[in-house]
Design a protein around this nucleic acid. Sequence first.
DNA 1: TTAATCCGCACTAAATTAGTGCCATATTCT
DNA 2: AGAATATGGCACTAATTTAGTGCGGATTAA
Lengths: 166, 166
Amino acid sequence: MLRFSRKADYGILLVADIAHSMDESPKGVSAASLAKKYSLSKSFTANILKDLSRGGILFSTRGKGGGYFLSKAPDEISLHDVVDVLDGGVKMTHCTPSGSFTSAEHDADADSGDCCEISETCPVRSPLQRVHRGIQHYLESQTFENFYDGSLGKDPFQVREALEIV
Amino acid sequence: MLRFSRKADYGILLVADIAHSMDESPKGVSAASLAKKYSLSKSFTANILKDLSRGGILFSTRGKGGGYFLSKAPDEISLHDVVDVLDGGVKMTHCTPSGSFTSAEHDADADSGDCCEISETCPVRSPLQRVHRGIQHYLESQTFENFYDGSLGKDPFQVREALEIV
DNA sequence: TTAATCCGCACTAAATTAGTGCCATATTCT
DNA sequence: AGAATATGGCACTAATTTAGTGCGGATTAA
Ligand code: SF4
Ligand code: SF4
């Protein structure tokens, strides 16, 4: 099934929330408060935030009153960045060379790129690379500017109806 | 890591090959010949083809001289169709309702759609649904018309250079 | 009848994802 | 100084998914 991992999914949620919070007040957001707000396990939440921090998407301050902040403007952070850090990047085919810079950790398969033995003669390799780039660019185009749906939490039915989610 | 499974990846290759073969002669293509042509395991290849057949993308004839055919014109079959059958579809988030029709088999989680407890109040749900639809539509737009790179196998270097794959 | 070919299912192994926990370190407040 | 609040790093286990194999049965053409 083609999907974001939960880590990436929640990571997007957390980044979006922090972006939204910083919009209202320039205070850091703690892992504990986010976990509580979204009913997530504290350790899982903390892990995701730590990864995002190591990946350069967030930065943090410790101690009382500390927490996480965006390290760039919301429109400078894309879904691709988050997926890259939390999910090991986008590599639609198995012969896709390690793109962009794909933060360490997941780079165990950095063996020159092609893991598929038939890549030299594969007749769909280049069409699929085009598809790979299409998806990658699409995710890069989706930034955290206006990614937080502030209208939710007010009147779920009305909102969902307006968005045609039914 | 966001990627096609090997099954989907090879499935795309196989469908593309069959589309290309039917273009040249209207004969069926056997699992054995495809496995040999691409140095794949016969049983794995056969399994993928069987799934594609059950999923309505291919149809088959048995017995000597039999094999697989496309069941629609190449431009009527999209990558999304293949991914749907072989990979259980595209559901970028965990709260994505079962889209299109997502062929049985993988439909174990058909419990009304949302598997994420916070979906009612999630502020990124609808933006992410939009992303989901973006990717889904993109894959639907990629059909098997001209998806077979016939120029490969002739002069790998020249071809790859032309396609800017380096 | 024999050989080619798909069909359906059941099974195992490997890899990835998901999730937890502990202790160290930094910062702030009293 | 000491307590309370936070993140940082690491190591670990469990659950799920992907990957891949195998066999006996049905169908068809020569
Ligand atoms: S070479 Fe062809 S089959 Fe192998 S991974 Fe690349 S695209 Fe897929
Ligand atoms: S509700 Fe929000 S967090 Fe949960 S799966 Fe949907 S988008 Fe992701």
